Structure formats: structure tokens, C-alpha cells
Amino acid sequence: MIEVIHDCAEHARQPLVRGMFADRKRLFIDLYGWDLPASEGRYEVDQYDTADTLYIIVANEAGEHDASIRLMPTTVPHMLADIFPHLCPTGVPVGPDIWESSRLCLPQRHGAEGRRVAIRRKPPCGGGEGAVLRVLV
């Protein structure tokens, strides 16, 4: 099942959202060693997880986080403009129809093959959000 969540603060207590942030912490902080904040020592949440953020989350049959990606409108502060503008020599793309994707999270528990590949190939459950997930994953 694919869930599209806007404004995670509104859904912060939802197990699916907590699972996503916990998996992000295990992947980006614990495994990759990125120097990022860890809320309550359990969740990877940064300054770009705001009311403007859109999350596309793949949930398994039990409703638990299987994969996710974060989308930010470029009309508000976002990582590419704030931290990585040097990656855009002709200027950071900005506009109401341009979104930044980050924090693609495919948890290690799925293994490098098998389950992770199945998640990437999972048929979309919705319209555009499923298409976005298939393109980005």
C-alpha cells in the first residue's frame, strides 16, 4: 500500500510515520554515519521535515514502513538550495511545479536483493503518487 502524507507533524504519532523516521535513523545515521540530528535518539528528523513536506511511504501488509521518499517544494527552503547549490552551476531550479526529492529510504532489513527489488517494483496503488514513487525508487 502506498500512503501519501503531507505535514508529518499532524501524523507524527502514526506508527507508519514513526517507523519511517526510525528507519531513516538506522540507515542514514547508524549505517551511513551521516552527521544528522536524532530526535529522542530514535528518529532521523531534520529542518526539512516541515509542514510543507510531502512523504510517499510504501507500507507492508501489516501497515509498517517498507520504503519512503521525501518531497519538498522548491518554493520554500530546501536542501539543494541551502546546502548543495554548487551542484547546480546554472542555478538551483525553483518553481511551483518543481520538487526536490531526498531521503529515499529502503531499509537494510530487506536485503540488497530480493525484497528490496520487489519493493522497487511494487505496483502503484494510486495515481500520480505511485508513478512518482516508481520513477524515484
Rank of each mutant, 00 (worst) to 15 (best):
residue 28 F to N: 03
residue 55 Y to V: 00
residue 132 V to T: 10
residue 107 P to D: 08
residue 137 V to R: 09
residue 18 R to N: 00
residue 5 I to L: 14
residue 101 S to N: 13
residue 5 I to Q: 06
residue 25 K to G: 00
residue 107 P to E: 04
residue 78 H to L: 08
residue 48 Y to P: 08
residue 46 D to K: 14
residue 118 A to I: 08
residue 105 C to N: 01
residue 72 M to Y: 01
residue 45 V to E: 04
residue 53 T to W: 03
residue 95 G to H: 07
residue 89 P to Y: 03
residue 110 H to D: 15
residue 125 C to Q: 08
residue 89 P to V: 04
residue 26 R to H: 09
residue 2 I to V: 15
residue 80 L to Q: 11
residue 60 N to G: 15
residue 84 F to H: 04
residue 95 G to T: 07
residue 68 S to N: 09
residue 118 A to D: 10
residue 33 G to W: 05
residue 30 D to Q: 08
residue 88 C to Q: 03
residue 3 E to T: 07
residue 31 L to N: 04
residue 107 P to V: 06
residue 51 A to L: 00
residue 49 D to T: 00
residue 131 A to R: 15
residue 120 R to T: 14
residue 61 E to N: 09
residue 28 F to Y: 13
residue 5 I to V: 15
residue 28 F to H: 05
residue 61 E to D: 12
residue 21 F to C: 02
residue 130 G to A: 01
residue 80 L to G: 12
residue 68 S to R: 06
residue 48 Y to Q: 10
residue 118 A to L: 11
residue 27 L to I: 11
residue 58 V to I: 13
residue 5 I to K: 02
residue 60 N to L: 09
residue 74 T to K: 12
residue 41 G to H: 00
residue 50 T to N: 00
residue 57 I to S: 00
residue 91 G to P: 03
residue 14 Q to V: 12
residue 106 L to C: 02
residue 131 A to M: 14
residue 14 Q to W: 15
residue 33 G to K: 04
residue 39 S to Y: 03
residue 133 L to K: 07
residue 4 V to D: 13
residue 15 P to D: 03
residue 119 I to G: 13
residue 76 V to T: 15
residue 117 V to R: 14
residue 100 E to G: 09
residue 59 A to R: 14
residue 115 R to V: 08
residue 77 P to L: 00
residue 63 G to V: 11
residue 129 E to N: 15
residue 16 L to G: 09
residue 22 A to Q: 15
residue 34 W to N: 07
residue 57 I to C: 06
residue 58 V to Y: 10
residue 127 G to P: 07
residue 120 R to W: 09
residue 37 P to T: 01
residue 127 G to N: 01
residue 91 G to L: 04
residue 21 F to W: 00
residue 83 I to S: 01
residue 65 H to N: 05
residue 101 S to F: 15
residue 91 G to N: 07
residue 11 H to I: 04
residue 79 M to K: 13
residue 97 D to A: 14
residue 126 G to Y: 14
residue 26 R to Y: 12
residue 118 A to G: 11
residue 124 P to R: 11
residue 127 G to V: 02
residue 11 H to Y: 11
residue 44 E to D: 03
residue 89 P to G: 05
residue 73 P to R: 01
residue 114 G to M: 09
residue 66 D to T: 10
residue 44 E to Q: 01
residue 113 E to M: 13
residue 61 E to W: 13
residue 102 S to D: 06
residue 115 R to T: 09
residue 17 V to M: 07
residue 17 V to L: 04
residue 133 L to V: 10
